[in-house]
């Protein structure tokens, strides 16, 4: 707050005797602490970005991005892992998106207030909190073994899809609920049926929000390791996956394997840095995109 004035009068204080109040002192101390917290958080997270970028950059080359690993993981590139991560993520979203959207539509538009619906809501909330390794166990027991898909892209995508489901449902619900009631009423008042209103009014106006939520989950799925460890990922394949039943390499698992297996730590570390940089770039670009989009939408809806 700025001001411009001619000071004819003297300032006053209620405590003329005391130079500094205790409360002002604790305020200064407290604010210092808060600043330190924020600085530490940013420092640590910033140093991760710094190390991965600075040490990973030398590993990146056209060959690194486009060729397969050679000589027991000590040379060559990570192209199969990039392709694997893309296909696993794509598969997971292809499975979870329609299902999650349908569920969100039901919960926001059709849901009768019954115990059953409450149970569905509860199960979504709880599904969201389950550790990814438990999803991995489930995927292994059901998709890999019972359904007999084996360790494959299909098993991995389904496992990742189930993991992403709660996030997609709640993002879609939020987007659908943000559609003003007046839009729906206008449509219904014109004689549209419930489904026509959903399909032509509700979904089109909530679509940007829904897609943002989906993109945000893409980032999480792409970086996930524990859920694909025993459902889809393999340390090494010769080439690219040729069907949904083949094992795939994936960037996150590749980083893990490079760090814990193999016999040439030096050269493997460089490749791990390079893979980390690719994964990080991928995930951060995707999630920044989602967050920027969301902020823009919030401004549109005046939220």
């Amino acid at each position: 707050m700025k001001y411009k004035t001619i000071h004819t009068a003297e300032p006053f204080t209620a405590h003329p005797g005391k130079a500094i109040r205790m409360s002002d002192f604790s305020q200064a101390l407290g604010f210092l602490f808060l600043g330190a917290c924020a600085a530490f958080a940013l420092f640590f997270l910033g140093s991760i970005l710094y190390f991965v970028i600075v040490r990973g950059a030398p590993a990146i080359s056209w060959e690194f991005l486009t060729s397969a690993p050679r000589k027991a993981m000590t040379q060559g590139g990570v192209a199969p892992a990039i392709v694997g991560t893309f296909s696993l993520t794509l598969g997971a979203i292809a499975f979870a998106f329609p299902l999650g959207l349908a569920c969100a539509i039901y919960l926001t538009e059709y849901s009768p207030k019954t115990i059953l619906v409450n149970i569905i809501r509860l199960s979504i909330a709880n599904l969201a909190g389950i550790p990814s390794i438990v999803f991995g166990l489930f995927g292994f027991a059901i998709f890999v073994k019972v359904f007999g898909f084996g360790v494959s892209m299909l098993s991995g995508s389904l496992t990742l899809g189930i993991m992403a489901l709660p996030g997609i449902i709640s993002a879609s619900q939020e987007a659908i609920l943000a559609v003003p009631q007046s839009y729906k009423e206008a449509s219904l008042a014109l004689g549209a049926t419930h489904w026509q209103t959903i399909a032509r009014v509700v979904l089109p106006s909530s679509l940007p929000g829904i897609l943002t939520g989906v993109i945000l989950n893409v980032g999480r799925v792409a970086g996930e390791t524990a859920a694909i460890m025993f459902t889809a990922a393999t340390f090494y394949t010769r080439g690219y996956p040729d069907s949904i039943f083949s094992e795939v390499m994936a960037l996150p698992y590749h980083i893990y394997a490079l760090m814990t297996e193999g016999t040439h730590p030096e050269s493997q570390t460089l490749i791990a840095y390079g893979s980390s940089l690719i994964l990080l770039t991928l995930v951060l670009v995707v999630s920044s995109l989602a967050i920027i989009l969301r902020q823009r939408q919030r401004r549109v809806y005046g939220l």
Binding site: M1, T8, A9, P11
Partner: peptide, 26 residues
């Protein structure tokens, strides 16, 4: 309020409340 600005003077018992040395808390 961020971005707000006052010009002029407000005196409480003759003392300028927007003087730089005024203690807002008191």
């Amino acid at each position: 309020i961020p971005g707000a600005r006052v010009e002029g003077q407000i005196l409480l018992d003759g003392f300028d409340i927007y003087h730089p040395k005024t203690d807002v808390v008191s």
